[in-house]
């Protein structure tokens, strides 16, 4: 379980996150939703170690992950799929995947790669092709696959729907749901696309200007009209 407690991040005088507290249990999907500039990406980048928080902490199964280096955090079991299909276009599909678990034993890596290919059969078909020949949806699958190659306990997904066709978004989010159900990974998802995200999440968290305004079961958040009008803009 990923526990975020009182996390505060400032960029100079600007507070990007202010006392954010979220629990992400294993096997569940927690969706953080909010408008542009709400602090969603900052939250993800802080958890992955790319940004150092001013106060507060995050733990994975009791172990502190904040203020550690990104390469150590991923080894502890927290993997981030950053915004914008974070594959390396010059590398092949297989190399992108191998990169995700480069530090692991070869045999463990093989096992995980087979699991990733089960989950994303298209990646197995395109193994030897360069990542820049893939479609947007395929590249997002590759980005998630790369993160899974570290065998994470917690998966952080930053705007996986960005720039993808609605049908592809639904497919990807279904796969994320399956992943949480089948592998008991804790999934923290940030999305601007609130409707789709809340439809498949267990818990919804509404973030506005760096503060949490509401946490609750996803269906309850989705049906709260006032919340929708005030913060989600629909």
């Amino acid at each position: 379980m990923l526990s975020i407690t009182d996390l505060t991040v400032s960029y100079g005088p600007v507070e990007a996150l202010n006392g954010v507290t979220i629990s992400v249990p294993r096997g569940e999907v927690t969706a953080v939703i909010g408008a542009n500039g709400a602090g969603k990406s900052t939250l993800m980048r802080t958890l992955a170690g790319l940004v150092t928080p001013a106060a507060g902490q995050a733990t994975l199964d009791g172990e502190i992950i904040t203020r550690k280096r990104p390469e150590d955090i991923v080894r502890m079991g927290v993997a981030l799929v950053p915004e914008g299909r974070s594959t390396i276009p010059e590398l092949t599909v297989e190399e992108n995947l191998r990169l995700g678990g480069l530090w692991r034993q070869k045999s463990d890596r093989r096992t995980t790669q087979a699991e990733v290919f089960d989950l994303f059969p298209v990646l197995a078909e395109r193994q030897r092709m360069r990542a820049d020949t893939l479609s947007g949806g395929e590249r997002q699958q590759l980005a998630i696959g790369r993160a899974l190659m570290s065998n994470p306990k917690c998966l952080l997904l930053d705007e996986p729907s960005l720039g993808l066709a609605p049908l592809i978004v639904t497919q990807i989010l279904h796969l994320v749901r399956r992943l949480a159900d089948e592998t008991r990974i804790a999934v923290l998802l940030v999305e601007q696309n609130a409707v789709t995200a809340l439809r498949m999440a267990d818990t919804g968290v509404v973030l506005n200007l760096g503060r949490i305004v509401q946490t609750g079961p996803a269906p309850a958040i989705a049906s709260d009209e006032k919340l929708r009008h005030a913060y989600l803009g629909y």
């Binding site: 992955a48 390469e71 991923v74 974070s86 790369r146």
Partner: peptide
Amino acid sequence: EVARLSGVR
């Protein structure tokens, strides 16, 4: 950045 996020030192 992607290399670090993948665990590469």
